[in-house]
């Protein structure tokens, strides 16, 4: 078979037009599989959290909502999110007094008197969903991973329960679920955020001290928050690429 120049050029032209059209059609079909993701595309999101320390009132709504939403054991040592109370005597920020009775689940019984010369505040904690997460790097079987939309998730059907990741997390955000003997941690309410809802903790926070944000969505208010506030991550020296930013964070917070 011989092909003259005219046929070749015409064929190439058709190919040039049809290939992207076919790719777009294929992409549309892929995205439209209703049982998986009606409109949610992993590549379109990059989830993060901002926490306004100066707005937190230590009510514990987030802790209760998180445990209810995610079926976290109610014993006082299993938490996906918890709240710490800091009490920093004047001038000794290296040695703050920190307590977290039941993770803040029942609120905080008053321990301190006004006018004792110290500052006191609440700091909510959760998985920082690090972009360079130490916990996923040590998993020997790939049972915990950074999802393409920026959430650190656990594959419970594949976790061995070896506890490497529990030790590797510099923020202490992981625990072994006593019922399954596999690891559990904040999933950023992945079952909610992929359906267009916010996390259970953000949903129930009465002062908007914690807000979920999608960094890939240019209209998300998180961008305005990050512009308007001086923010810091926890343990920046560990270079974890944490995506949980704290506004108004005191230097004493570990």
């Amino acid at each position: 078979m011989t092909v003259d120049r005219r046929q070749l050029l015409a064929g190439l032209g058709k190919l040039l037009v049809l290939t992207p059209a076919a790719a777009a059609a294929w992409e549309y079909l892929e995205a439209g599989r209703p049982e998986e993701a009606p409109s949610y595309r992993l590549a379109d999101h990059w989830w993060a959290m901002v926490i306004d320390v100066e707005a937190c009132i230590g009510c514990g709504s987030c802790v209760r909502a998180c445990k209810t939403e995610n079926g976290v054991p109610l014993e006082p040592y299993y938490f996906r999110t918890w709240v710490e109370r800091y009490h920093v005597p004047n001038g000794v920020s290296e040695h703050p007094e920190v307590d977290s009775p039941n993770g803040g689940y029942d609120g905080f019984p008053e321990r301190y008197r006004p006018g004792d010369g110290a500052k006191s505040f609440f700091v909510p904690k959760l998985c920082n969903h690090c972009a360079h997460s130490p916990c996923t790097q040590v998993c020997p079987v790939g049972a915990t991973f950074d999802s393409p939309d920026g959430v650190v998730l656990v594959d419970k059907s594949y976790c061995l329960g070896c506890r490497y990741c529990v030790q590797a997390c510099p923020y202490g955000c992981r625990y072994i679920d006593p019922r399954t003997n596999t690891v559990d941690k904040c999933s950023l309410c992945y079952h909610r955020i992929t359906k267009g809802l916010t996390t259970a903790c953000c949903e129930t926070c009465p002062t908007d001290a914690r807000r979920l944000g999608d960094l890939k969505d240019p209209k998300d208010p998180i961008h305005e928050f990050l512009r308007a506030h001086k923010v810091q991550v926890l343990k920046p020296q560990m270079a974890t690429g944490s995506k949980t930013w704290y506004a108004g964070l005191d230097g004493s917070v570990r």
Binding site: A65, T68, F145, S147, L153, S157, H191, T198
Partner: peptide, 23 residues
């Protein structure tokens, strides 16, 4: 998609909503 089982993403999306949300 990376060093993990792709189905784990769907597994993490599976739980039912406990909080309905204000909307």
């Amino acid at each position: 998609l990376g060093h993990f089982r792709t189905g784990a993403i769907a597994d993490n999306r599976a739980p039912k909503l406990v909080h309905a949300g204000r909307a």
